[in-house]
């Protein structure tokens, strides 16, 4: 719990701003964070927006889905897929995504960023 207490929660947007089973990009200072509403699973996820493969700011535009029940996102460029839970790349182990916790309160979505 101590880890949670030192977390700063960035107000990202409202629940309605995010398309069902899709993502949006949140500007958080200089950082770009991809926020996904996995409506089907009733879950929220956040990862870095940059795909580490070719360093493109596009993951929020990627398709989300599952692989053996592991929720994942596919990059629009070359379809590299990453676990939304661990950020791990599911095609090869060479790169991984930074992930962030997400909290929803009163219709607002917050992303947990380290302080």
């Amino acid at each position: 719990m101590t880890a949670m207490e030192t977390m700063a929660w960035f107000p990202a947007c409202s629940v309605d701003d995010v398309p069902a089973n899709g993502g949006v990009c949140v500007k958080c200072g200089e950082e770009q964070i991809a926020l996904y509403h996995f409506t089907r699973r009733n879950e929220w996820y956040a990862t870095q927006n940059e795909c580490p493969h070719r360093r493109q700011m596009v993951l929020s535009r990627g398709m989300i889905g599952s692989q053996n029940d592991e929720p994942k996102v596919a990059c629009p460029f070359h379809k590299k897929t990453f676990s939304l839970v661990t950020g791990e790349c599911l095609n090869d182990s060479e790169c991984a995504l930074k992930t962030y916790p997400v909290r929803v309160e009163a219709g607002r979505v917050f992303i947990g960023i380290g302080v």
Partner: peptide, 14 residues
């Protein structure tokens, strides 16, 4: 997906 499939879909079937 509800009627004919299982799971949550992916970048192939979508």
């Amino acid at each position: 997906l509800d009627k004919l499939g299982t799971g949550d879909g992916c970048e192939l079937c979508k």
